[in-house]
């Protein structure tokens, strides 16, 4: 049986300590396996949107030359964590789009680890966090590139959007690179809604809630841009925007 993590653990440093202490230790042994056979392509969609604390942990194994796609929205009312560990085969590709969105005082986080142990694999992660109230959105993204994993291309892009003073985001990229011929583009930024865009939209007759919704939709749209299925894209967007609609 695993021992409960605390915020002293690097990997849980921004989590909600009080919630962690109450977790059932069994859940820490529960991993959802997502295996993609060599040469295949598969997609998984995850939505965390419950009322209570949620811990969703996915272990992805991408076979040689295979592609795995994972898209997720973390939009619940309480502490929620989507944790994704990915093992990439030779020439494999992993595509990730993740959104944390919500208010209240909850912590919502996405924690990823890319294990590039073999050459020629690529991974691309786009994470967007939208928060208000005194909520916090976290992204911890670790990328390990082993000595033999030449020609690895691992990209990571995080953007946070704070709708109200009091909300916060934390972004922590962590790159451990032991190969020399690799590309690891990573970016993290935090901002607020563009005031001039809001006024421009109001000047055309859009009420503030609607303008905000359109701007948030545009902002998180990046995370789902690589999702080829428009219906799925819409479904994810609806879940995310529903959280915005509940904003008190």
């Amino acid at each position: 049986m695993a021992t409960l993590p605390t915020t002293r653990d690097e990997n849980w440093r921004y989590a909600d300590g009080a919630v962690l202490a109450q977790l059932d230790p069994d859940v820490l042994d529960q991993w959802d396996d997502f295996d993609v056979a060599p040469g295949e392509t598969a997609r998984r969609i995850i939505m965390a949107g419950g009322a209570g604390p949620e811990l969703i942990r996915v272990r992805v194994t991408v076979g040689d030359g295979a592609t795995a796609e994972l898209f997720g929205v973390v939009a619940g009312d309480a502490y929620a964590r989507l944790e994704v560990v990915v093992h990439l085969g030779r020439g494999a590709h992993f595509q990730f789009g993740g959104v944390t969105i919500g208010g209240g005082d909850a912590v919502r986080e996405i924690v990823t680890r890319m294990d590039h142990a073999l050459p020629d694999a690529t991974s691309d992660q786009v994470i967007r966090a939208v928060h208000w109230g005194t909520a916090t959105g976290n992204f911890l993204g670790r990328i390990d590139v082993a000595r033999h994993a030449q020609k690895t291309d691992a990209a990571q892009d995080f953007k946070g959007l704070i709708l109200e003073r009091g909300a916060a985001t934390n972004a922590r990229p962590e790159l451990e690179i032991y190969a020399d011929d690799v590309k690891c583009a990573h970016g993290a930024s935090i901002g607020q809604l563009d005031e001039s865009a809001r006024f421009y939209m109001a000047a055309r007759g859009l009420p503030p809630e609607l303008a905000r919704k359109l701007l948030v939709q545009a902002f998180i749209g990046d995370a789902f841009a690589a999702l080829g299925d428009e219906g799925e894209q819409e479904r994810l967007m609806d879940v995310a925007l529903a959280a915005l609609g509940d904003r008190s």
């Binding site: 865009a197 007759g205 545009a218």
Partner: peptide, 20 residues
């Protein structure tokens, strides 16, 4: 005029017109 990345003119104007 202000640039709004991620929002198309068609979507923007239809929402605006219908809001009005």
């Amino acid at each position: 005029p202000v640039e709004i990345p991620g929002v198309s003119n068609v979507q923007f104007l239809r929402e605006a017109l219908n809001a009005q």
